[in-house]
Design a binder for these strands. Structure first.
Length: 886
DNA sequence: TTGGTCACG
DNA sequence: ACGTACGTGACCAAT
């Protein structure tokens, strides 16, 4: 702690920031009595972060006393027209003050003055008395107080982040000194405080003028010397406004405050009062923190320090591992567990907690036997990560039967996290810190000292065990036990094996493509520069927009937040207007393939000549998987150039096959099943081409023979639209018809498939009643926005309520197929490996002599994954590369 | 870190 | 009347 360091906080401003930081969680943060607490809670977090960063010896928090101040006397409309502070925030202010009192911190407000003036006055007093002064506010006005010993911190978006304004920083940002800033404001006015400055003068002009003249007084002495301009006229006309604005902008540094520096001393924390306060507001996290900080009086057993034993090769022999159940955690630094550095492990048995940084201990007796013993049930967090980490150490884990991460994802994937600490916090267990707290993030990520590390890991294994009953109970309440036990947990092992196997990629094929595409790209580049008349960065949408819409004067058809849109959608319509457009589209397409797929893929081929993706099993809102590092679920297939990439994906044996099998229209079949629509079910049961059948229906034809390719295309778009929760606008935009036509198609569709409409209505109604949408396997997606007042937000939730059960059930189905498939491969003792899943498609690496059996069993297993009211159909293809597997 | 763009189902 | 399709990940430029 610095000797004399005074922290002055702008209470209203910080509370305001705190309130809006968690505004979206407004309804989730309430006390047992129903009081909103989001601002109180965040205020405390921000306050803690200030203490940590600034280490003050003295503190005072200043508040505004009321609406009327000496400034409103000068200027009636001061802060007029400003939106009223929401009641939800106002009602929290007294509690913030109460909390500060318990914390031993003085709050102060003064009739007729704003918090700014209190801070201005105290900062002056502090400065004169030899204090280092730190001012914290969300309001940039305060930056005028900055001086050699006064630093003004302006809160940024993140809870703990602040921008430090020293006189030097002021100069960089505004070009003026803190005192000159007042004069700058005099010229600019302040729209949020509702007072005008000089007409047409903004920050730029104001800054330039003040840099030139130093103050408005001096400026107006010389104003007649300025050469004739609109600016000069405005300055002269608005002279009174400027001088008034200066008065309003100036913080009173000699206000008649009734507190002095002696009042800023920090008193001791009123522990009992604070605890009672936290309990009243339901702040479990802060309560838990208190128990640790104050030692003794530990009310929450969560916060006990755990005793652990550090395992070494010397004491390992004494380790008793005769339990039938234990918790285990293997720590690796970084997301990519295929490559991540091992840090340490922790183990919790009935005897106690054991930790060690020596992961080699896992490779030997007795830990290896323990981990490989199927009869000892292991509780973990992130089964797949654990399994693969152990696999790298030569351990084939068995008996892992509980995964806290998977369970929490199934229970509620709304506030999804892969961090054990964060998940534990969701279940009111604050005994374990988050990994970011312990290891840091980004460049600063590092392993801490042994004591910190071991305590963290000990807390982790304890939390895994401790929360297990609650999570299992909740799964049961949700009727998700079989989704968890029979789908997600077994699937995690299947995915682990797929990831470990990886897929063979031929770098030479990619390098050939790199050369070809490279030549095409340089040729296109030159041609484009020639047409444009200059060289520029083709990959910059901003620069490209400038060339197209300003230099070449093409019509800008669409805008984005930041400028002109240059997307395919726009460029496609400009094709006829300039030769350059086609070339740009062509360049874009090839450059995408080159950077993302050719170069990107080459970068991630590992030493074994394979790519090992990671499937994220606990990420998506619908239950699908996602694939990263590399993403193998978006390898090009639609364009021929892109499809070339697939030639580099080959079987592990040269004469082997890549075998691919995909479901035909799973989502529509799921829709036919869940909606019970008779016409659609009949179409699938009879084996019609569903899009042609739809075309026949919506165009009122007598037979599918009359369906033209155009009609079929339209019908296909309508079928897709239905799955997404259709709107006439969306459909019209997608297939380039009018909204009216689109509406007619949709109406006609609902007439022909009446069950679909009632399904959609029912889906929305049920989401409203239950608060979530659900798949056939009881996977949930919570939809709080279904009750939103905002039309757009609510509509989005409604479409989601329709789409999620469809997309999610399809995900359930292929997951079941994958588990059955892996089982079958093992049963039949085949060498074939399942290597990829692309949402409705499974891909296998097949030795030559297994092709025949695979052709038979894969479609069979996929088609029989689940029994629906309509048949599931899966079509297979194979070849000597992924490209040829069609 | 964010936004634009584009690859996939 | 509201403005709009559902679900993802990677790359690049600009902040």
């Amino acid at each position: 702690m610095a000797d004399k360091k005074l922290l002055l906080i702008d209470g209203n401003s910080v509370a305001f920031r705190a309130f809006y930081a968690l505004y979206r969680q407004l309804d989730k943060f309430t006390s047992p009595d129903g009081l909103h607490t989001n601002a109180i809670y965040t205020f405390k977090n921000m306050f803690d972060s200030m203490l940590k960063q600034l280490q003050p010896s003295n503190i005072l928090v200043a508040f505004d006393a009321g609406k009327v101040t000496f400034r409103t006397e000068m200027f009636q409309d001061y802060k007029g027209g400003r939106q009223k502070t929401p009641n939800e925030l106002l009602e929290q202010l007294p509690f913030i003050k109460e909390m500060l009192e318990h914390l031993g911190v003085k709050s102060y407000e003064l009739e007729n003055y704003e918090a700014d003036d209190i801070i201005g006055t105290l900062s002056k007093m502090g400065d004169e008395a030899g204090y280092e002064v730190a001012v914290v506010s969300g309001d940039r006005d305060l930056t005028q107080l900055a001086s050699k010993h006064v630093t003004v911190y302006i809160t940024k978006n993140g809870v703990g982040e602040m921008e430090a304004y020293t006189p030097e920083h002021m100069k960089e940002v505004n070009g003026v000194t803190p005192t000159e800033y007042i004069d700058m404001k005099a010229l600019m006015g302040d729209s949020s405080d509702n007072y005008p400055g000089v007409t047409k003068v903004g920050p730029k002009t104001a800054s330039n003028l003040i840099q030139q003249y130093g103050s408005i007084e001096n400026l107006y002495e010389h104003v007649e010397e300025m050469k004739k301009s609109k600016l000069k006229e405005n300055l002269i006309n608005d002279k009174d406004k400027a001088f008034l604005a200066k008065k309003l902008a100036t913080i009173d540094r000699d206000s008649p405050i009734a507190v002095g520096l002696e009042d800023t001393k920090i008193n001791s924390v009123d522990i009992a009062g604070l605890r009672e306060f936290y309990e009243r507001l339901g702040f479990k996290k802060f309560l838990a923190e208190m128990s640790v900080a104050t030692d003794g009086n530990v009310s929450s057993e969560d916060m006990q320090k755990y005793d652990y034993v550090e395992l070494t090769s010397d004491n390992i022999a004494q380790l008793k591992l005769d339990d039938s159940e234990a918790a285990f955690y293997l720590e690796m630094l970084g997301d990519n567990y295929h490559l991540a550095q091992f840090v340490a492990f922790a183990l919790k048995t009935s005897d106690g907690i054991y930790v060690s940084k020596d992961v080699a201990l896992l490779e030997e007796s007795p830990l290896k036997e323990f981990l490989q013993n199927p009869d000892i049930k292991k509780n973990v967090f992130d089964l797949k990560r654990t399994y693969i980490g152990l696999n790298r150490l030569g351990v084939q884990a068995e008996g892992i039967n509980y995964d806290m991460l998977l369970a929490s994802y199934l229970i509620n994937n709304e506030n999804n996290s892969n961090d054990l600490g964060e998940v534990a916090h969701l279940y009111d267990n604050y005994a374990v810190k988050t990994d970011v707290e312990v290891y840091g993030k980004g460049k600063k990520q590092a392993v801490p000292d042994d004591e910190t590390l071991f305590s963290h890991l000990a807390a982790k294994v304890v939390a895994i065990d401790k929360l297990k009953p609650a999570l299992l109970e909740e799964l049961k309440d949700h009727e998700q036990d079989s989704l968890y036990d029979e789908i997600e947990v077994p699937l995690a092992f299947v995915l682990a094996k797929m990831e470990i196997t990886g897929m063979k990629v031929l770098p030479t094929t990619l390098i050939q493509l790199e050369n070809e595409f490279g030549m095409q790209l340089s040729k296109l580049e030159e041609e484009i520069y020639l047409e444009a008349g200059e060289r520029f960065n083709l990959n910059s949408p901003k620069q490209l927009g400038h060339i197209l819409f300003e230099k070449l004067n093409l019509p800008p058809l669409k805008k984005t937040k930041t400028g002109y849109s240059t997307s395919v959608e726009v460029l496609d319509q400009l094709r006829s207007q300039s030769k350059i457009v086609d070339k740009i589209l062509n360049y874009r397409q090839i450059s995408k393939i080159q950077s993302t797929y050719v170069k990107g893929l080459l970068d991630v081929v590992q030493a074994d000549g394979r790519v090992h993706t990671r499937y994220l099993q606990t990420l998506t809102a619908t239950g699908r998987l996602s694939s990263v590092d590399p993403n193998l679920q978006n390898i090009p297939t639609r364009s021929e150039e892109g499809k070339q990439i697939r030639k580099a994906f080959v079987p592990s044996q040269e004469d082997g096959y890549i075998f691919s099998c995909d479901y035909s229209q799973v989502e529509l079949r799921v829709l036919a099943h869940v909606s019970g629509d008779e016409n659609m079910q009949e179409a699938f049961n009879t084996g019609y081409d569903i899009h042609a059948h739809t075309a026949m229906k919506i165009f009122h034809l007598n037979s599918t023979d009359e369906v033209t390719p155009d009609m079929r295309r339209t019908a296909k778009a309508v079928n897709f639209g239905i799955v997404y929760g259709i709107s006439d606008y969306g459909l019209s935009k997608n297939i380039g018809i009018t909204r009216k036509q689109a509406k007619e198609f949709i109406d006609s569709y609902f007439e022909q498939y009446p069950g679909i409409r009632s399904f959609m209505d029912q889906a929305i109604k049920s989401a409203r009643e239950k608060g979530y949408a659900e798949t056939i396997m009881h996977r949930r997606r919570y939809l709080p926005d279904i009750h939103a007042k905002n039309f757009n937000v609510r509509s989005f939730a409604e479409r989601t309520a329709i789409n999620s059960p469809i997309q999610g059930s399809a995900a359930d189905i292929i997951k079941i197929a994958m588990i059955n498939m892996q089982k079958k491969l093992t049963e039949l003792n085949l060498k074939t490996k399942m290597v990829l899943q692309v949402h409705d498609e499974l891909i296998f690496d097949v030795p030559k002599d297994e092709l025949e059996i695979i052709k038979k069993i894969v479609p069979e297993v996929m088609q029989n994954a689940i029994k629906l009211d309509v048949p599931l159909i899966a079509d297979a293809g194979w070849g000597h590369s992924w490209y040829d597997a069609k």
